[in-house]
Design a protein around this nucleic acid. Sequence first.
DNA 1: ACTATGATTGGAAACGTTTCCAAAAGGTCT
DNA 2: AGACCTTTTGGAAACGTTTCCAATCATAGT
Lengths: 345, 345
Amino acid sequence: MRRAATIKDVAAAAGVGLATVSRVLSGTGSVSPATRDRVLAVAKELDYRPSAIGRSLKLQRTGSIGLLVPDITDPFCAELAAGVLDCARTLGEHVILDVAHDDPEREGEIVDRLVEQRVDGIIAIPGSGDGAVWRDAARVVPVVFAGRGLPGLPSVVADDRSGVRAVVEYLVGLGHRRVAFLGGHVSVAAGPEREQAFRDTLAELRVPVDDDLVVRARSTADSAFAAAASLFQRRSDVSAVLAASHLLGEAAVLAARGLDLRVPADVSIAMIDDMPWAELCDPPLTVVARPARDMGYRAAELLLRDPARRERGRPVVLATELIVRGSCGPPAGLPGGSARSSRTR
Amino acid sequence: MRRAATIKDVAAAAGVGLATVSRVLSGTGSVSPATRDRVLAVAKELDYRPSAIGRSLKLQRTGSIGLLVPDITDPFCAELAAGVLDCARTLGEHVILDVAHDDPEREGEIVDRLVEQRVDGIIAIPGSGDGAVWRDAARVVPVVFAGRGLPGLPSVVADDRSGVRAVVEYLVGLGHRRVAFLGGHVSVAAGPEREQAFRDTLAELRVPVDDDLVVRARSTADSAFAAAASLFQRRSDVSAVLAASHLLGEAAVLAARGLDLRVPADVSIAMIDDMPWAELCDPPLTVVARPARDMGYRAAELLLRDPARRERGRPVVLATELIVRGSCGPPAGLPGGSARSSRTR
DNA sequence: ACTATGATTGGAAACGTTTCCAAAAGGTCT
DNA sequence: AGACCTTTTGGAAACGTTTCCAATCATAGT
C-alpha cells in the first residue's frame, strides 16, 4: 500500500499537463481522442483514484451529509436511516452517521464536528431537548428534521394527530369506553402532541377522558414497564390501552402477560409505530404505522434538491396508517366479547 | 449563511500570521499567553470553524472510516453499527455508512467511493459474494470484517461453532432426537459453517443426522416461511428445530403458529442471533446470541489502533451465549413432557 | 556591551484538485 | 500567403490547512 497516485503522476506518465488529465477524467472541456485514450490507459495502469479531498477543497462542497439519530438500533431510526441512504445514493452523496442518545450536549458536539467536516447538510431526528442546539445549527448549515419537527425549521413528519385519531376511533368503535393512554417523554417522539390528540379525539367522540387513565413514563424500559403494570393493577376496569411509542407498547404487552391478562379478551392493546415484532407478537399487535423509510427519503430530498421549499420551513406531513392486527377486540362483557372474557383476577 | 471564516481571516483580524493561529488552535508549539488569548477571542468572534478538508489534505488522513453493512434495518447490523459508532466516537473518528443489500457489485462501487473519500479504513459485514471484491479492496485500504470473516483477512467474528454446539447439546439434553436444522444463504451470515457445526455436534452426541431434517431456504422471508412450513408438514415427528438466522427463526415461529403447533409442547424452537422480538414472543425464544455490539466495537478497535494485529489477519473470535428462554422443552411423549402434548393434527 | 540561549513569530511550501486564461496548433477561406 | 476561426493544450492560481525553517525578540550570563 504505497503512496497513491495523484493527478500529477498521471499527467507526468502520460506526458500531458494536469489540466488535460483533469479534463479527461471529469469529461468536461475538449480533448483529442488520442490523448484521452492515453490518459485513460495511464490512469488505469497506475490505479489512479481521484482524491475527494482535493476536489472538495477546490469545489467547496463535500458531497456528504450528516445523519444524526438518537439510536441507530431503534428500528424506527434504522428504517428512517435506510430511507436517507436510499436517496443519498441516488444523488451520489455520502452519509456520515452519528448517534446522540437523546443528549442535547452530545447533539451539539456532533453538529460542530459535522460542520467542521463541511457536510452539505444535516438530517436529524432531534432528541427531547429544547431545540436551542438546532436553532443554532440551522444558522450555519442546512438542516432538515425527520420524525419530529421544530417550529420554524424544515422537517418531514408523520401526521400523528390523524394516526392517533384513527386508532382511538377504532377502539371506541369496538365499544371501548375506558381507554388508557400510556405516554411519556420517549426519545423517538411521543411528546405531548399525541396525548393531546388522544384527549381531543375522545372528546370529539363524547367519551369522557379519565385523567387517571393517562399515565406518563420516563424514557427507560423499566419506567415504562412499571407504569404499564401499575396501570393494569390500579384500574382493572381499563378495557383498552394505547401505547404512545414502541417502548411503551412493549411494556404494555409484557405487563399484560405478567399479570395473565389475555389480549384482546381481557384488554386490547394498540401502539404507535410499527415494529417487526408487532407481527410476531401473539396476538399480533394493532398499530399505527409511521412511514419511517419514506420520511428519511423525503428528508434527504428536501435537504439536497429542494432548497426553495426547505427555506420556507414548513413541515412536510406524511400520512400514517392504521394496521389492524389481532390485539384489539370488543371490551369484556359486551355483546361480541369472547366467552372467556371474565377477568381472572 | 455567508462564506465561512478561514484561518486567514482570523490571522488578519488578530494581526498575526497564519502559523500562529494554527498553533493556537491546535495547541502545539509555543505562543505567548497574550497572543493566544487574542487569537482565541477573534476566532470566537468570527465563529471560525477549522475546515476538516484543509486539514485532511495536509495531514493525508481524514479521520473517517467507512462502515458497510448489508442492511441497516437488520437488528444485527444495527447493533454492530452501534458498536462501531461507540468506538469511533472515543477515537474521534467519523463513520460513513452505506448499505450493499448483499450485492457484490454494489459492494464494489461503495468501496471505490470510500477509497476516493480517502477513509482511514473500512469495516464491513460482507455479503454472500465470493469475496473477490474484498480481496481487491484490502490491497488499497485497511479492511476489517465483522460478523463474517474471509480467509486471510482480518475479522471479528463470533464463535459460531461453539454456539451451535451449545444449543444442540441443550436440545439433545432435553431429550430431543429428531432435531431439524433450518438453514440457508441468508445475507447476515448463516453460511454452511453452522450447518456443519450442527452435523458435527449431533454426530459427537451419537444422534443420527437425518438429512431430510436439514433444509435450506433462500434468503427471502417467503422462501424461509415455505421451508419451515413444509418441514413441519412433511415431518410431523420433528420435536425441535434450530433456525440458523433470525429470519429463519421468524419463519419457524410463524409456521408453527400457522399450523397450530404449540411451542414448546408440540415443537421446540431455538434460533441463532438474539433479537428484540425474541423476548416478546410467546413463549420467549431460546437463542444463541452473538455479541453484535462488541463485535462492532472490537472491529473498530482492530482497524484503528491495532495495525500490527490487524496485519496478521487472524480472526478475533468472540464467545456466543446460549440464552435459555421458554421456547424449548422436553419432546412430546417423554416423561416431563407437558400433559397437552398430543399433536392437534 | 556582547553573545548565547530560549521563547515567539511569520513566510512559504505542500497536500490534490478544478478552472480560468492564454498560447499553440491545426484548419479554412479569401 | 496571410488572416481568421476552432480545437486542443498547459501554466498557474486558488481552495484551507499544517509545519518546517529562519528570523526576530527578550532574557540572562559573561
